[in-house]
Every structure is written in structure tokens, then in C-alpha cells.
Design a protein around this nucleic acid. Structure first.
Lengths: 117, 117
DNA sequence: TGAATATATGAATAGGTAAACATATGTTGG
DNA sequence: CCAACATATGTTTACCTATTCATATATTCA
């Protein structure tokens, strides 16, 4: 039903434009969607999330796994935290991070499936 | 089974780090994944994709729907094309764009579900 | 309490990128 | 063939952001 063009005529006079405009999800939602994907669009953050797909890890674990500067990792964790893509749990002087919910897991899996075909 | 910490001990000596490292998907794949999300992370591109979720549209339709400069739309369509997120079909002087496959549709839906809860 | 460890954060810098403008390419109809 | 229309693209500019360095905060343990 969707994704089909119903008669073409001259460009911009098919009624399609108006129809699509009306069905349009709110701008705010689309802005949030772009924002969510932006959070997932950095190599370092993807590596962090991929690692967390396997296990809950503390910052210094991640520093080892990624072989990166602790500061860089913390900065990216902050981005992930702010976007509620990861959650954390303090235990003494360690902070353990994990993926926030199954939605995030699905997005990552779906994305991985796509790029690996 | 996954996502569980099996004994903690001193940071970096749990065997977890090595285990996670070994299971690690190839760097190239993770780079592609970040790249895919990057393509989906721009407001204009999300608006384009969201419109294409409803119908196949030509460039001038999109220019109207988005109410944007034709040049800006074309530039973003190029990004989407290069990433094989959209496909196109020429018909005379018009070029009709549509989402490339169901994987993309799923990613968008999943993302939308997440941001709308 | 003080040293060591774990994490967070402010500031500076380098690299990337979306939008606008101008222009080129390609297609149709008269 | 020529004019009008549809689309693509090179360039410039302004903005954004990931990393690094330096430092602050917080917690444990001897």
C-alpha cells in the first residue's frame, strides 16, 4: 500500500506532496530520531556499544578493550549517558556501564545485520 | 547469558576484557556500522527518508515536502545514494527515489519507536 | 590521613560537514 | 534546434565535534 506512486502527471501536482506532508511525523520526533542516530554514528561510541553488547563493563575495562585514552572514553560515555543509550551502576570507585534497553540492542543488531548482509 | 558479569576482582583482571576482545566484531564492520548511522544522523536526511517511507518521490516533490533549496536536497540525496540507503529510478527528466530495502525501513521504524516510546 | 586508583570534565585544537550560491548536465516539447 | 525544466555538483563558509592534555573529584586501603 505504502511506497507506491498513484499516478504521476506533472511534478508537484499529484496530490502526493500534500498527502505526504499531512502524514508527516512531527518535526520534533524526526529531530530526536536524527539525534539518536547521531549518537550511534561515531566509531568510538559504536565500539563501546558493541563491547557492552557482550558484557557489562567498567570504564577501565573499556579503556583496555578499545585501547584508548581514558579521557576520550569518558567523554564518549557521557554522550551515551546523556542520550540514555547506556545506563551505569557505581560500585566503589568503579562505574559499570551497560546498554540501556532492548531497543538499543535491536538497533545495533539490525544495523550490524545490514552492514554484514 | 550475555551481558552478565562473572566475578569482578581487580579491574582488568577478570578475563572479561580478553573475552570481549576475542568476540569483537571486525573493526571494518564496526566502522561501516558507524558510517551507516552517520548517514541516518542528519535532520534533513531523516526527513527525506521519513517522506520516502510513505511514497516514492522525485526530487522536486522532496523539495516541496521539505521546503528546502533544491541544491541542499540533491546533496543529501547523494549521501543517501552513496550509502545505498536509497535507490533511484529515472523517468524522463525526473528521478524517483525510494528506500533501498526493508532493512532500512526496519531501522527507521525501530528508531522511531524508540524516540516516541 | 595520605597515596594510589578510577572516573569525570574544562579548554584548546584539528578535522569534518551541511547549507547556500553559482553553474553544469541532461531531458522534453515546441 | 532552442527554451524551459529537473537534477547534479564544485566551492565557500560557518558550525560542530572527537581527541588530547591538564586537572578535578571521589573512593579505597594501608
Amino acid at each position: 500500500m505504502a511506497n507506491q506512486r498513484i499516478g504521476q502527471g506533472v511534478c508537484g501536482h499529484t496530490g502526493m506532496v500534500e498527502a505526504v506532508k499531512k502524514e508527516m511525523t512531527g518535526e520534533a520526533v524526526l529531530r530526536d530520531l536524527a539525534e539518536l542516530f547521531k549518537v550511534l554514528s561515531d566509531h568510538t561510541r559504536v565500539r563501546i556499544l558493541h563491547a557492552l553488547l557482550k558484557a557489562e563493563l567498567c570504564v577501565c575495562d573499556l579503556v583496555e578493550v578499545l585501547d584508548m585514552n581514558q579521557s576520550a572514553v569518558s567523554h564518549q560515555l557521557r554522550v551515551l549517558r546523556s542520550a540514555k543509550v547506556v545506563k551505569y551502576r557505581k560500585e566503589g570507585r568503579h562505574v559499570f556501564y551497560s546498554l540501556d534497553d532492548d531497543h538499543i540492542v535491536s538497533l545495533l543488531q539490525q544495523g550490524l545485520d545490514h552492514v554484514m548482509e
